[in-house]
Nucleic acid binder design. Structure first.
Lengths: 345, 345
DNA sequence: CTGTTAGCGCTTTCAG
DNA sequence: CTGAAAGCGCTAACAG
């Protein structure tokens, strides 16, 4: 109100300002504000400090604190993309544990190797005390985690094709379950099985486990190897719907579809029903991921995935690594995917 | 290999180590590594520094750099929860701009006022150079943003019921569109209109715009005011499905349902179809949010929401605030929701 | 119980 | 073109 024209930018108060106002030293301010048990401070002094801090609207500077303490009290989650249910669940599980441990969570999105390298660089620069990397195997394959691991940085990686060396690994092997699902389709008489994959599933030389299982099933069981039966569309509900709609409009449509995500598999069920087809009679549908959403489709979604979607073991590995401070040997936990037969195939 | 038993924790290399190895001063290291144009360094020296840094596997310490520079080159996104499509879109839009501006993004999840206060505390402690707060109006109502705004911290808030004072606000007023949707239902002869809300929509004294519009429509148009027609279930696809299924099993079921999310509205269409009902004939369904997913339902989803889901204006406000460094006046951008009639009502 | 002091690792004037 | 030196704001020994 006094100077509406050129509001003078008064600098943020520091612990020194608080100390001065309370008539104590900065050390005392630090002790009071961090409430350490080994450092008893007189009640009167403590109150003066608290009052001073409150009246100055003081907030301690994180960078300075991190620098001095040599830790950030933060963990970092590196995910491959936004809006993917499994990453969402991972984020939830991580937040739950981090909150309990009074740790903050920072999330970085690294959809390609370039971004992932940037994220790793940030980690090397000490942006957090540990990290959970879940960018997917495709990106992981192009990454070198050695520089991080070499510095004993607490790290847990979700990936099926990395070796635990200097960090921990959480694996979800998919192949066996996918093969079982495909065999089931074959056993129930399907010959023209389509594959709806993520865009990344076919990327260059990389081949996802789901796609790999599909290719080998086609070969092994002598199925119709029609390239027009392999399409992208698993990344997204809408894309999935359109992809399956297009498949069904083929002159020789598929009699089954193996979809690399449950989201898109649900869209597949719709697309089939909207085309006047009966699932599974006219089109068998198998999804991937075992999301709860598959329970409410009609028919309920047959899928492959972990029998329970729970990342807390991986999260706990991370926190145990952070707590130990040691250079632990690399641990691996493995959660096999299973074939979960419900109504759609 | 040499000492497998007690791996000595060699400390991370600092700029001093690099300087020593390169035979230059730490200042030169800083100049080289930050590649400043105003400070030309001899090519030979520069190369020595780069080699030294590489051979030591050096990564500059962020905390120290942030402390000295008095900025973090990071922005913070505070969202109300994980796995909500609109927050996902917001995160995407923010990441897009931040990447281009060479800014990092840290995300915090603040589902309730306590968490939100913690997040704000972190912001006050300088965890980022600016923030986008999107926790939803319910949480926002319990929050005091003054302490942040007072320190001229660059801030943009997504909220319909906050005043832009010391920060910018992006509003998406819902009420008018909701009223239009409800009037449309009434005009097409619906009398028993159900409301499927988020758990937070009824929280204590708080009443969301969607729910408020529903209550007033019931009163104004003299609709059946049956409390059993008001249920939670909008937070989640599965919950939404179950909630609508239960509504349809009522002895006096609704003839229309206004759902506070598109996700759950889609589940509502399914639930109706699975119950052998025709949409919209037997049950009219209106969603909220205008997600792309509503285009692929059968019938396509009638909804209320912004005509285009785009948060980049809000994001740009944030970055302009950060860039200016000034204490700008609070700006407000308003994007009205509209009634988008498709097939389901 | 409280104060003094020495840095954490980096950037940035200011000299040379 | 390069170096010396002064801190950024905080915590943690160590004294008293």
């Amino acid at each position: 109100m006094a100077e509406p024209t050129r509001e003078s930018h008064r600098p943020k108060p520091t612990s020194r300002d608080v100390a001065a106002l309370a008539g104590v030293s900065v050390a005392t301010v630090s002790y009071v504000l961090n409430g350490r048990r080994d450092r008893r401070v007189g009640d009167a002094t403590r109150q003066r400090v608290l009052d001073a801090a409150a009246s100055l609207n003081y907030a301690p500077n994180q960078s300075a604190r991190d620098l001095r303490r040599r830790r950030t009290q933060r963990v970092c989650l590196v995910v491959g993309s936004i809006g993917v249910p499994t990453y969402d669940k991972l984020a939830e599980d991580l937040h739950a544990v981090a909150d309990a441990a009074e740790y903050g969570v920072v999330t970085m999105v690294a959809g390609d190797a370039d971004r992932a390298r940037k994220a790793i660089e940030s980690l090397r620069q000490g942006i957090a005390d540990g990290a959970l990397i879940a960018t997917g195997d495709r990106v992981l394959a192009e990454l070198s985690l050695e520089s991080l691991a070499a510095s004993a940085f607490p790290l847990v990686v979700l990936g099926n094709h990395v070796e635990a060396s200097g960090f921990d690994v959480s694996r979800f092997p998919e192949t066996a379950a996918c093969e079982r699902a495909l065999r089931h389709l074959v056993d129930s008489g399907r010959r023209r099985i389509a594959f709806v994959g993520h865009r990344g599933d076919f990327d260059g030389t990389y081949r996802s486990e789901r796609y790999g299982a599909y290719r080998s099933a086609v070969a092994r069981h002598g199925l119709d190897a029609d390239e027009s039966l392999v399409v992208a569309g698993a990344d997204d509900r809408v894309e999935g719907y359109r992809a399956v709609k297009a498949l069904l409009a083929l002159s020789a449509p598929p009699d089954a579809v193996f979809v690399a995500s449950d989201r898109a598999a649900i869209s597949a069920i719709w697309a089939a029903r909207d085309a006047g087809l009966s699932v599974p009679r006219d089109l068998a549908v198998v999804g991937s991921g075992n999301l709860p959403d598959g329970l409410i489709t009609n028919p309920p979604l047959t899928t492959v995935g972990p029998s329970r979607l729970d990342y807390s073991p991986a999260v706990r590995m991370l926190f145990s690594r952070i707590a130990s401070g040691q250079q632990l040997p690399g641990r691996t936990i493995t959660t096999d995917w299973t074939f979960i037969r419900r109504g759609s195939a």
